[in-house]
């Protein structure tokens, strides 16, 4: 059992703060194969009208899905995850990086124990993932 697999509808789960640095983006670019330079090259990012280098949406989604898997105590219990990328996370060229606050709330518990989880991700007080929903099914 875990915080999530014991939770009832309406329960808010333990939040998590994650940081994203330029080095994280380079590692994710290599691991995922998404080499789009807006995620590691300031010059290109600014040229296309961005405020600076931004995190891959899929990287932020990955951090959020990992968070839910940790709450469930089993990454394989996360059987669905959907989200909208509402705002970019601008990652500064420093050692501190950008901070993203993750939160999760159970919105439904089905008869078989499957939980629907509403996930939030905010950066500088504004949502970066929209309508993020995870489905967690204990094995």
């Amino acid at each position: 059992m875990s915080a999530l697999t014991d939770a009832s509808a309406g329960d808010q789960l333990e939040p998590r703060t994650v940081t994203i640095t330029r080095a994280d983006l380079v590692a994710y670019a290599g691991a995922s194969g998404d080499l789009n330079p807006i995620h590691w090259n300031e010059r290109v990012a600014v040229e296309v009208g961005l405020p600076g280098v931004i995190a891959h949406g899929m990287f932020t989604m990955s951090l959020a899905a990992r968070y839910v898997g940790d709450l469930a105590g089993d990454p394989a219990a996360v059987v669905a995850f959907s989200t909208r990328f509402t705002r970019p996370v601008v990652v500064p060229d420093d050692d501190a990086g950008a901070t993203v606050e993750l939160g999760a709330k159970v919105t439904d518990v089905a008869d078989d124990g499957t939980r629907t989880v509403s996930v939030t991700a905010t950066h500088e007080g504004k949502g970066v993932l929209g309508k993020a929903v995870a489905t967690v099914r204990p094995r």
Binding site: Y28, A31, S32, S62, R66, D70, P75
Partner: peptide
């Protein structure tokens, strides 16, 4: 490699 890149340290990965 992918798990390490997203900080997923659960041993099942």
């Amino acid at each position: 490699e992918f798990a390490a890149a997203i900080g997923a340290d659960d041993p099942v990965h």
